[in-house]
C-alpha cells in the first residue's frame, strides 16, 4: 500500500511540476487572496490583526478547493481511471498517494502564504514559526478530506460547484482548530488544546479514505 501511495504521489507531483499550474496559477492566487483580505480589513486593521490566523486558513481553504479541482481534472482525463483500474492498484494506496501529493502542494503553498501573512498582515515571525507543526497537521487533514471529497464530487453534474458545497462543512472544524492553534501560538498559549482536533480529523479522514475510497472508484 505504501509503495503504491508513493508511486501515485510521485506521478501527481510530476504532473504538477511539468504543468507548473501550482507555480503560475495557484501560488499567485493565494497571495492575491491574502492581499485582498488585507484590503478588506483596511489599512488601520490589517497590520497585527487578530484576524490573521483565520485569514491564513481561509486563503488556504480556497487554495485547497482549486487544487482538489485540479487533481480531479487530472484524474478525469481520458483513460486515467481505466488505466488505474486495469493496473489493479490498491485503492487505499491510490487514496494515500493522492492525499500525500495534495498535502505536499498545500504545504508548499502554505509556506508562501505564511510569508505573505508576515509581510502584509504583520504576523509575528516567532509565533508563526511555532505554529508550523499545527499548520502542517491541519493542512494534511485538509488534504486527506479534500481527496475524499474530490472523489465524491468528480464525474457528476457541476463538480466544480459541488465540491465546495460538499467539502466546506467538513473543512469548517479544521478551519476553527487551525485558527485557534495558530492564535494560541501567536499569543504564547498552549498549542495542544486545538491541535488535537486537527490530529483526530487527520486520523479519521485517513481511516475513512483507506476503507471507502475503493467503493467510490468502483465501476
Amino acid at each position: 500500500m505504501i509503495r503504491i501511495a508513493l508511486l501515485v504521489a510521485g506521478k501527481d507531483l510530476r504532473i504538477e511540476r511539468r504543468s507548473r499550474v501550482l507555480l503560475w496559477q495557484v501560488l499567485p492566487f493565494g497571495v492575491t487572496a491574502l492581499v485582498l483580505c488585507g484590503l478588506a480589513l483596511g489599512p488601520l486593521h490589517a497590520g497585527n490583526s487578530s484576524a490573521a490566523p483565520g485569514l491564513f486558513y481561509l486563503v488556504m481553504l480556497l487554495v485547497a478547493l482549486l487544487m482538489i479541482n485540479r487533481a480531479q481534472v487530472i484524474e478525469g482525463s481520458p483513460g486515467t481511471r481505466a488505466s488505474v483500474a486495469t493496473l489493479g492498484l490498491d485503492p487505499a494506496g491510490v487514496f494515500l498517494g493522492k492525499a500525500l501529493a495534495l498535502a505536499v502542494e498545500l504545504w508548499l503553498t502554505g509556506v508562501v502564504v505564511l510569508a505573505g501573512s508576515v509581510l502584509f498582515l504583520h504576523t509575528a515571525l516567532s509565533g508563526t514559526l511555532s505554529a508550523l507543526p499545527s499548520v502542517v497537521v491541519t493542512l494534511a487533514a485538509l488534504a486527506a478530506a479534500g481527496t475524499l471529497y474530490g472523489a465524491l464530487s468528480g464525474g457528476g453534474q457541476g463538480p466544480a460547484t459541488l465540491l465546495p458545497m460538499l467539502s466546506l462543512p467538513a473543512f469548517a472544524p479544521l478551519l476553527i482548530a487551525g485558527e485557534r492553534s495558530f492564535s494560541d501560538a501567536l499569543h504564547g498559549g498552549s498549542l495542544w488544546r486545538w491541535w488535537v482536533i486537527s490530529l483526530v480529523a487527520l486520523a479519521a479522514y485517513l481511516a475513512i479514505g483507506i476503507l471507502l475510497y475503493g467503493v467510490l472508484e468502483e465501476s
Binding site: 475524499l148 457528476g156 453534474q157 458545497m165 460538499l166 462543512p169 475513512i208 471507502l212 467503493v215 467510490l216
Partner: peptide, 27 residues
C-alpha cells in the same frame, strides 16, 4: 444540504447511491 445536492448531481443510480452512502457516513 450537501448530501441532497450530491444526490441530484449524479444520474447513475448505483454511483449516486455509493457516493451518498460514503458522504452520509463521513457526516
Amino acid at each position: 444540504l450537501a448530501y441532497l445536492a450530491l444526490r441530484r448531481a449524479n444520474d447513475d443510480p448505483d454511483l449516486r447511491a455509493r457516493r451518498c452512502a460514503v458522504f452520509a457516513i463521513i457526516a
